[in-house]
Computed example of a mutant assay.
Amino acid sequence: MQRPALIRIFLVFLRLGLTAFGGPAMVPFIRARTVEREGWLDEPTFSLGMSLTQLLPGATAMQVAAYVGLRARGGAGALAAYVGFGLPALLLMLGLTVLYFSARDVAAVTAAFTGLQLVITALILDAAVNFARRYLDSLADKLLACLAGVWLGLRGNPILAMAVVCVLAVFLVRDGQCGLPEPREGTGRGPLRFAGLLLASLLALLAVLWLVAPELFRLGLLMVKIDCFAFGGGYVSVPLMLHEVVEVRGWLTEPMFMDGIALGQVTPGPIVMTGAFVGYAVSGLAGALVAAVTVFSPSLIVLCAATPFADRLVRSPVARRVLKGSLISLVGLMAAVAVRFALSIHWTPGQALLALAAFAALRLKVDILWVVLAGAGLGAVLF
Rank of each mutant, 00 (worst) to 15 (best):
F10Y: 08
S344G: 15
S329Q: 13
G284M: 08
V290L: 07
G325M: 13
L197A: 15
W251D: 07
R71C: 10
G153Q: 08
V278W: 09
G232Y: 06
I271H: 10
L209T: 01
A59G: 13
F194Y: 07
A103M: 11
A305Y: 07
A342T: 13
Y82N: 14
V98W: 06
V129P: 01
G284R: 15
Q2W: 00
M26K: 05
D42F: 02
T274F: 04
R73L: 07
N157I: 09
G39L: 08
I261N: 08
A112G: 13
A127W: 00
D105W: 00
L300P: 03
V381T: 12
L252F: 02
P4D: 02
A111T: 00
P270F: 11
L222I: 07
G95A: 01
V109N: 06
G287A: 03
A5E: 12
D105P: 03
V109T: 03
R193G: 15
V266Y: 10
W210G: 04
L382Y: 12
Y100D: 14
A213W: 05
T348S: 15
G264W: 01
T187I: 00
P255L: 03
G153H: 07
V109D: 02
G287S: 09
M273P: 01
V371I: 13
S51V: 00
R340L: 12
G77E: 06
